[in-house]
Write a protein that binds this DNA or RNA. Sequence first.
DNA 1: TCACTCTTTGAAAGGTATTTTCAGTCGTGG
DNA 2: CCACGACTGAAAATACCTTTCAAAGAGTGA
Lengths: 324, 324
Amino acid sequence: MSSRLKETFTGGGGPRGAAAPSGPLAPAAAPAPAPAALTAKVRALAPTMTRSMQRVAETVAADPAGCAALTVTGLAARTGTSEATVVRTARVLGYPGYRDLRLALAALAAQQAAGRAPAVTADIAVDDPIADVVAKLAQEEQQCLADTAAALDPVQLDAAVAALVAARRVDAYGIAASGLVGQDLVQKLLRIGLIAHAHTDPHLAVTNAVQLRPGDVAIAITHSGRTIDVIEPLRTAFDQGATTVAITGHPEAEVAQYADLVLTTSTARESELRPAAMSSRTSQLLVVDCLFVGVAQRTYATAAPALSASYQALAHRHDPRPGH
Amino acid sequence: MSSRLKETFTGGGGPRGAAAPSGPLAPAAAPAPAPAALTAKVRALAPTMTRSMQRVAETVAADPAGCAALTVTGLAARTGTSEATVVRTARVLGYPGYRDLRLALAALAAQQAAGRAPAVTADIAVDDPIADVVAKLAQEEQQCLADTAAALDPVQLDAAVAALVAARRVDAYGIAASGLVGQDLVQKLLRIGLIAHAHTDPHLAVTNAVQLRPGDVAIAITHSGRTIDVIEPLRTAFDQGATTVAITGHPEAEVAQYADLVLTTSTARESELRPAAMSSRTSQLLVVDCLFVGVAQRTYATAAPALSASYQALAHRHDPRPGH
DNA sequence: TCACTCTTTGAAAGGTATTTTCAGTCGTGG
DNA sequence: CCACGACTGAAAATACCTTTCAAAGAGTGA
């Protein structure tokens, strides 16, 4: 009589559970323990469970993330039951054991977290914890990149690249944050052999712009499109017959009047704690990167060796020791 | 000889690591191993790993779902290594042991499955049309932002913000592209009333670093973590007792030795046409933005008026006319 | 080239966590 | 009140994870 059966719960319905809603043949007996379905499964199976097991199941459904961090013993303690009960519950829920339930819980928690993430697009508040700030800033800058990529006109961009490749000399004008973008562009162009200068001093910029000739390129970077200190030198370059490019978030603004080519950056909404400088800079840098890669492509024969040469030249400025 | 040390990888911990608010050695240091950051972390730490560990790390990053189903023994067999190596790899990746890595893998797999297409970006080719270049660059930079946000340690970030708020004076060191990032940070901090300077000249940087005192903050920005020109001034600042912060993609590199706080940026794979400077700059700027917003939050009473005041002061530098 | 040291590695021992067993408890119906 | 079956948890048994340790390998200087 002493049947040596071990406690197995193959999930089978009891003799009376024959209502069998799944149809004549349910081949997908217990296919993949889909994590998302866990809450539903708990509700469905709760009536068939004993009191202790219900406690475990409910705890697990209520706080997947928290429970995923617990061992059997921990969960047993938290629910005021024993390890055996926890394992039994896991079996009823369709997993081979607690270990697998735990993995499913971690997956469920991640899914839930991922699902909630998009809701973070709200403005940054003064009392946001730092982790929210990181998430929101990253989110907004990603959006900004996507917008810029979508809005950027490939024809204008291509024309700008062509002008850069053919240029005898390239000047970039930008003030404050945009000035740094100009410098970034110039640094990159220099590395692949172009002759480029970045100007942040309005007077010097105009003085230099006078030197430009047809075939040269002048690039003005201004988010508002109305920064006089940047417009003036571009206008001078324009008058000199140079090819002029404007990188701006406002293509309808004054700067475009003196620009042969206009590269539009996205205009993200800004808030008190998130000045325009941030998203415009992200946008502008993407445009700058595109220009750089475009030029590098077209001058690959000379750009590739130049890039590796500049890397070699800097090698001795780095401590050679590998790890710590 | 027979040192009784057990194989522990407690991770960072600078020589003086005391600036951390969590105490000399935070027992709960384990900064919530964010699953999304895993791929980024593998890339960042791969260079510091041994060959066998790299095999394990790559296998895990390539197929999180598959590996989550394996036991230590299984994963060891699959990678042709031993259990010990698998555990060591898990430790290096920031988990207490394999069990926790496995949970993270399950979570990551769920996230990937739930999320949209993985969108594996192909390298930019020499003959890609410009529209593809735009799309690929935007995609990669978005990924880079997501990785950085996931990998950034809120505790370290918060500590850095606190240090900045309390600082008498802030110095930032960076060379080339990282130099621009430093200038960007300084520009922002100046706008909300902090006293900050950016240094790109190594000699002047050291000269200035000597002036720093406890309570001051020095920030070094270097992707490789091995740029001598940046490490030297940080070391000087460190020796002077200032609070030192490193923004680097390689937290295991030398710069971290002299940093009380390390803010890790993501390490995207690079290719010939896409130098490291691009993604590292994107990463670094996100960190800088987070620092800025964090400081602005904590000094809101003074920062908000300062921000609008600086905007007012510049108004006359913009052409008032609306459109063209 | 060789000896030496430091690093890397996996086999096996040593611990934990999970699973199973089994006896005690509780509720229920006769 | 007793008999019976379902439920439960303590503890044994097992599976899995972690640590140790010695050997193989890589690097370095003589």
